[in-house]
């Protein structure tokens, strides 16, 4: 039997024809078959070719991850599926916008921490900041945790974008 320890998080890149319903197909596949989606991002990356790239972060046992990839590959508009977690090193980044509300000592402290994390202030009022932070998911998680006691009021995250290291493109 599989144990919890066999469950791993994988980042999967999916190149799809950018046609109506393609995202619904991917999401329907995950909900219909009971797979996890931890993060999903999508945008067109080649307008001339009508190509979109979906980056999915999911978790499962090796057998489930293989199933997910095979099921994705089976969708008619899917051109390519790549498991960035196992197919060599990859970089992944996420962007978050955080609204932190407060005055006095807390306000100063939030700025200090933002500086350490290299977050940018993209909006400010007398009693609030909006910080922009870019990095790996765990860096964002850490930043958010530190902001919580300092007046964190709202978060917007993009989800993960990822790409393999080195000179070779996916397609």
């Amino acid at each position: 039997m599989m144990t919890q320890q066999d469950i791993r998080t994988h980042t999967i890149a999916v190149l799809v024809d950018n046609e109506a319903g393609v995202l619904a197909r991917v999401i329907g596949l995950f909900s219909g078959r009971g797979y996890n989606i931890e993060s999903l991002t999508v945008a067109e990356v080649d307008t001339a070719e009508h190509l979109s790239r979906i980056t999915l972060v999911t978790s499962g046992t090796p057998m489930v991850i293989e199933q997910i990839k095979a099921q994705l590959g089976r969708l008619v508009p899917v051109r390519m599926v790549a498991d960035l977690t196992v197919e060599g090193p990859a970089v992944s980044r996420e962007l978050a916008l955080l609204k932190v509300v407060g005055t006095g000592e807390k306000r100063v402290e939030s700025l200090r921490i933002a500086d350490i994390f290299r977050a940018n202030v993209v909006d400010s009022t007398n009693e609030s900041f909006v910080f922009e932070i870019v990095g790996k998911t765990d860096k964002l998680d850490a930043f958010i945790k530190l902001m919580e006691p300092l007046g964190l009021a709202e978060i917007s995250r993009t989800g993960v974008a990822a790409i393999a290291r080195g000179k070779d493109p996916l397609l």
Binding site: A20, G21, G28, G32
Partner: peptide, 16 residues
């Protein structure tokens, strides 16, 4: 129809 049949077809199209 494409929404309803998405999960019960191999593929579907809406021609616009």
């Amino acid at each position: 129809t494409t929404g309803i049949t998405r999960q019960c077809t191999k593929h579907n199209y809406l021609v616009k």
